[in-house]
Write a protein that binds this DNA or RNA. Structure first.
Ligand SMILES: NC(=O)c1ccc[n+]([C@@H]2O[C@H](COP(=O)([O-])OP(=O)(O)OC[C@H]3O[C@@H](n4cnc5c(N)ncnc54)[C@H](O)[C@@H]3O)[C@@H](O)[C@H]2O)c1
Ligand SMILES: NC(=O)c1ccc[n+]([C@@H]2O[C@H](COP(=O)([O-])OP(=O)(O)OC[C@H]3O[C@@H](n4cnc5c(N)ncnc54)[C@H](O)[C@@H]3O)[C@@H](O)[C@H]2O)c1
Lengths: 208, 208
DNA sequence: ATCATATTGTTCTATTTTTCACAATAACAT
DNA sequence: ATGTTATTGTGAAAAATAGAACAATATGAT
């Protein structure tokens, strides 16, 4: 099993680059083309492919469509991924309105909120009361949730959805959540992203 | 110079954990407390501290306030960081309304957009026409920008703000931007974050 | 048919990052 | 004062990741 997160991220990048190349009319690609496209080395491209059991043709490179097929299968994109959003506030509703996930085979199917004013069953992505989350998640077999509730409510909300069958949470609250029974939590911490950027801007400024 | 991004991210996490511990009334902390708080190892905490030249007291642990002082200085938090948002759409305006950055010493001072309908000079965070971006950035000495324009406009907008003096960009458009003259670009790619989460949920599901 | 060439796939090497281990030592107890 | 203990700080070991090198080989040229 591959546990290297960066490796999976690179796989997503390769896939996106391949779609762009395909759209430009390319049919095959070489490891160094792909390396250029994602800003890596040809060695690493081939190494990654080897890890995933993806093979090409000596001297002939890789067929883009077959590459994409394999990558999509590895990334679980051969079936539509249904996702729910918990917390239909600023971030939550920006995500629910965003159309860009669909072209990636990711569909936000519902939002949940405790605030009655946020409920709207006739939205393109309906926003439902939090009490309905458990049954909705269970009956639709949802495994992935985006958590966008205020910090103070995040742990409780995480516990609820884990108990409802959610297996992976993308958490926007800037704190570390504890996860029970095998639910994976990935954090998007924008404060930390900005701090990080500021740090590197400062140090490159100083050393110059 | 420390170039290890994860190390800086951990530093942010330590800092956040320390604020929480401080709020709970703690005055000093040991490496293993901090490790627990951020989900790491005591060894790594001490190693990180050693890398940054942070020292504590044998048997006495670390004074929280002095730790915070040093970390804030390393992370450039001893002065208010002014940030602009380019693209006042869904994501951009969610960020501009978010109050959470301020307690981190990060202040979004303006947004910029090409759509006249988005312009609003009397907002708490004013949204100004893109044409004013260059002079605003220059005259206010802004170094950090958040880029939240549609994918197709992202490279052009990045070029513009780099040329205006921006040194670091937090980019939300799901594509790799080229950066000229020493401008650092960090990407927040939510599609990839979700794909990654889905991958790990799938593999843990399978191996179970 | 043979040769030269380009490109993969993998092994070997280097680098980076994390973890381990323990000497040094400050605080506390007796 | 002396001894005991807890905890740091760091150098060495291990693990993980990335990169370089090159043998294997398919392709196309002659
Ligand atoms: N908005 C941003 O730009 C931004 C940036 C970084 C981090 N965040 C983080 O993202 C999270 C959401 O931020 P936001 O700005 O969207 O907040 P928000 O206040 O706009 O929205 C939160 C929503 O969650 C709902 N809610 C509260 N408790 C709930 C619960 N237990 N279950 C379901 N819904 C619940 C609220 O009714 C509200 O609609 C916060 O943790 C915040 O720190 C936001
Ligand atoms: N909304 C989301 O949840 C989400 C999720 C993932 C990624 N993204 C990415 O974030 C970016 C913004 O998404 P969004 O949903 O906020 O889009 P949006 O269409 O709501 O907003 C984009 C804004 O940028 C403005 N704009 C266009 N060209 C500009 C230019 N050259 N300079 C300044 N402003 C300009 C538009 O007028 C608009 O107000 C996109 O790249 C998108 O792919 C968004």
């Amino acid at each position: 099993m591959i546990t290297n997160k960066n490796c999976i991220i690179r796989l997503s990048r390769y896939k996106n680059a391949l779609y762009r190349l395909q759209a430009l009319g390319f049919v095959k690609v070489f490891s160094d083309n792909l390396a250029d496209a994602v800003g890596g080395t040809a060695s690493q491209v081939r190494k990654d492919f080897s890890i995933f059991g993806i093979s090409g043709n000596k001297k002939g490179g890789y067929q883009i469509d077959s590459l994409l097929e394999k990558m999509n299968s590895i990334l679980g994109k051969d079936q539509l991924q249904k996702v729910v959003v918990v917390g239909a506030g600023h971030i939550g509703s920006a995500l629910m309105r965003y159309r860009g996930f669909e072209k990636e085979g990711i569909k936000i199917v519902a939002g949940f909120d405790i605030d009655p004013a946020k409920i709207n069953r006739s939205n393109p992505v309906p926003v439902l009361p939090l009490e309905e989350a458990k049954s909705f998640i269970k009956s639709n077999g949802i495994r992935i949730a985006i958590l966008a509730v205020p910090d103070i409510a995040a742990q409780q909300a995480a516990d609820l959805i884990c108990a409802s069958g959610i297996k992976g949470i993308l958490n926007f609250a800037p704190l570390g959540l504890k996860s029970g029974d095998g639910c994976i939590i990935n954090n998007v911490n924008l404060e930390i992203e900005l701090e990080n950027l500021i740090y590197f801007v400062n140090v490159t400024e100083k050393t110059k």
